Computed example of a mutant assay.
Amino acid sequence: MQDPDVVQQSDVCKRYGAEIDMPEAESKLGLTPSAACGVLPIHGLRHLPRGDASGWYVWSGDYSEDPDFFEPLRVNHALSSAMVFARYLALPPGWRFLIGADGYEDVWYDASLLATE
């Protein structure tokens, strides 16, 4: 029997024509406490992975440049806690998502996320 989380992540990738690129379970993502609690809207974007970072940044509400805006969380914790955004984590670098009220979902590719300085 397949893991329902894996099936859900695969379905998201197939629906948007993206290859499946699941981050390492022990890698970290940047997460705001409000997004962890499921406060909508939830935004997510994935840069290229670096070191032990998956490249994922997930937040609720307005974005902030404050260096303390994101807190680190291991990918496996986000998956095991069934956080509302977990189904998008298999999207590869360069992808974004927006989850809103009443089942609203938008997922798109943004090549600017792959730019390196």
Results as ranks from 00 to 15, higher is better:
Gln2Leu: 12
Gln2Phe: 12
Asp5Lys: 13
Val6Phe: 12
Val6Trp: 10
Val6Leu: 14
Val7Leu: 15
Val7Pro: 01
Val7Gly: 02
Gln8Thr: 15
Gln8Trp: 14
Gln9Phe: 07
Gln9Arg: 15
Ser10Pro: 00
Ser10Lys: 12
Val12Met: 12
Val12Pro: 01
Cys13Ser: 02
Lys14Leu: 13
Arg15Thr: 14
Arg15Lys: 15
Tyr16His: 15
Ala18Ile: 06
Glu19Cys: 04
Ile20Glu: 14
Met22Pro: 12
Pro23Ala: 09
Pro23Leu: 04
Glu24Arg: 13
Glu24Val: 10
Glu24Ser: 10
Glu24His: 11
Glu26Cys: 02
Ser27Phe: 04
Lys28Val: 03
Leu29Lys: 00
Leu29Arg: 01
Thr32Trp: 04
Pro33Met: 12
Pro33Ala: 07
Pro33Phe: 08
Pro33Glu: 11
Pro33Gly: 04
Ser34Pro: 00
Ser34Ala: 15
Ala36Leu: 11
Gly38Arg: 01
Leu40Asp: 06
Leu40Ile: 09
Pro41Ser: 08
His43Val: 02
His43Thr: 09
Gly44Pro: 06
Arg46Thr: 01
Arg46Phe: 10
His47Ala: 12
His47Phe: 15
Leu48Gln: 11
Pro49Gln: 00
Pro49His: 02
Arg50Cys: 06
Gly51Cys: 13
Asp52Ile: 14
Asp52Tyr: 11
Ser54Gln: 00
Trp56His: 02
Val58Met: 03
Ser60Glu: 05
Gly61Ala: 09
Asp62Tyr: 07
Tyr63Cys: 05
Ser64Tyr: 11
Ser64Leu: 09
Ser64Ala: 13
Glu65Ala: 14
Glu65Cys: 13
Glu65Met: 12
Asp66Glu: 13
Pro67Asn: 07
Pro67Gln: 04
Pro67Ala: 06
Phe70Ser: 01
Phe70His: 09
Phe70Met: 07
Phe70Asp: 02
Glu71Gln: 15
Glu71Trp: 05
Pro72Ala: 07
Pro72Gly: 08
Leu73Asp: 03
Leu73Phe: 08
Arg74Asn: 05
Val75Tyr: 03
Val75Met: 14
Asn76Pro: 00
Asn76Gly: 00
His77Pro: 00
Ala78Met: 08
Leu79Ser: 08
Ser81Thr: 06
Ser81Asn: 12
Ser81Asp: 14
Met83Val: 12
Val84Ala: 12
Phe85Ile: 09
Arg87Asp: 10
Tyr88Lys: 02
Tyr88Gly: 01
Tyr88Pro: 07
Ala90Leu: 01
Leu91Lys: 00
Leu91Ser: 01
Leu91Trp: 00
Leu91Cys: 01
Pro93Lys: 07
Gly94Tyr: 08
Gly94Phe: 06
Gly94Glu: 03
Trp95Asp: 07
Arg96Tyr: 05
Arg96Val: 06
Phe97Tyr: 06
Phe97Trp: 07
Leu98Cys: 06
Ile99Cys: 01
Ile99Arg: 08
Ile99Val: 15
Gly100Gln: 04
Gly100Trp: 06
Ala101Gln: 13
Ala101Leu: 10
Ala101Ile: 10
Ala101Thr: 11
Asp102Thr: 04
Gly103Glu: 09
Tyr104Pro: 01
Tyr104Thr: 10
Tyr104Met: 13
Asp106Ser: 11
Asp106Glu: 14
Val107Ser: 03
Trp108Asn: 04
Trp108Gly: 02
Tyr109Trp: 13
Tyr109Gln: 05
Asp110Trp: 11
Asp110Gly: 03
Asp110Ile: 07
Ala111Ile: 04
Leu114Glu: 09
Glu117Trp: 11
Glu117Leu: 10
